[in-house]
Design a protein around this nucleic acid. Structure first.
Lengths: 194, 194
DNA sequence: AATAAAAGAATGAACGTTCATTTTTTAATA
DNA sequence: TATTAAAAAATGAACGTTCATTCTTTTATT
């Protein structure tokens, strides 16, 4: 495999096709041949870029996860006050999940199945550090509840995945108003209540 | 497949095996042959109880979902005051997700992938009605935020799935204290703040 | 001309499902 | 009750298909 000099676009096309097909049919029903076809490439070519199917999916996961967190923290600055910083990150995440809904769908599917290697999963978690730091600071200042980061994540961030999936399935349509309500729910679940 | 008179146990064994194998390997990596082996049955026998693999998974989903909601509402009475009723249902759900963690895992996987037919999914949602009624009542009384049921579910109930998965993966261990904290987060996210 | 990239066709393994047969259960008869 | 016939349930092996992956050949690049 090594590194191919050329054609990063071909790699991108393969990753894009993987996301789309896995979203719509699930891992079990997306053959390499279909991925190749959607990316306008021969099945054999996939193996110039990826070791095998598992590797293709793992790499897709890590790459999408990185994009996601890059977007989430792009405008955040570690010196911001807690609530302002949280709101900023939260809104960016919400924004990503609604705009890049294909990517977000894919992540949700990976995060809830044994589709992905544990190693790639760990790799994906790393990028979340700035949010954990913010929470640590918030706990110190008595603004954020002194509870486990997993609990904070479960209530502050994870619900967005559920909402995104519901929207993708056509069960709801989220407008700016809903997002504001969701933010209020998220914030009130983790802030210290006076 | 008509109804078989005998051997409801064989059907149950098949469903149990399906849950366990799909949890650990995902749909795509659980062949019928393995399901048969784990249920101590010939592969051919599966087809006496289920039309095909998809049908087996669909039926497993609907059955587990029914168990889940049956458990959730078992001790609930429609005349309870809002907060008390909500707490009761919430605790039962938490209880189920931690005790019947295999079942809950399976549901989470189904709810986040295209593994399940849309029809079976709809079938599974029906059973949630008592909770929606409670919320309607709560909104009327000004106790619960006047927001979409999907938002309420996303913040009050869905986080438990995330926590359960994290626990199953060994990332956390939830004790009674965590559960209490989680309940507080859930309630504060949906109650009207005075 | 030499090398790297891509292609299509080929391969072997694995899978879901069915088939032909056997085993077990039920019902009928004496 | 004992024996036998019929029906139901269960089985292991086999089938046809699909899939991931590899092999060989062609095309593009330097």
């Amino acid at each position: 495999m090594a590194k191919l000099q050329k054609s990063i676009e071909k790699r991108n096309a393969l990753i894009k096709a993987t996301i789309e097909l896995v979203n719509n049919n699930g891992f079990h029903a997306t053959p390499m041949s279909k991925i190749a076809k959607m990316a306008n490439v021969s099945p054999a070519t996939i193996y110039l870029y990826f070791e095998n199917k598992q590797d293709l999916v793992n790499q897709t996961y890590v790459e999408v996860k990185a994009e996601y967190t890059k977007y989430a923290f792009e405008t955040y600055d570690e010196n911001m006050p807690i609530e302002k910083g949280f709101k900023l990150i939260w809104k960016r995440i919400a924004d990503f999940k609604l705009k890049e809904c294909e990517s977000a769908m894919f992540l949700a599917q990976c995060d809830n199945t044994p589709m992905i290697d544990e190693i790639s999963r760990q790799e994906g978690i790393k990028h979340l550090q700035p949010l954990l730091n913010l929470w640590a600071r918030g706990k110190n200042e008595g603004i954020i509840k002194p509870i486990s980061d997993y609990l904070l994540y479960a209530y502050a961030i994870n619900p967005l995945s559920f909402l995104m999936i519901s929207q993708k399935r056509g069960a709801i349509t989220l407008d700016a108003n809903h997002i504001e309500e969701a933010y209020e729910a998220a914030w009130s679940s983790i802030k210290v209540c006076k």
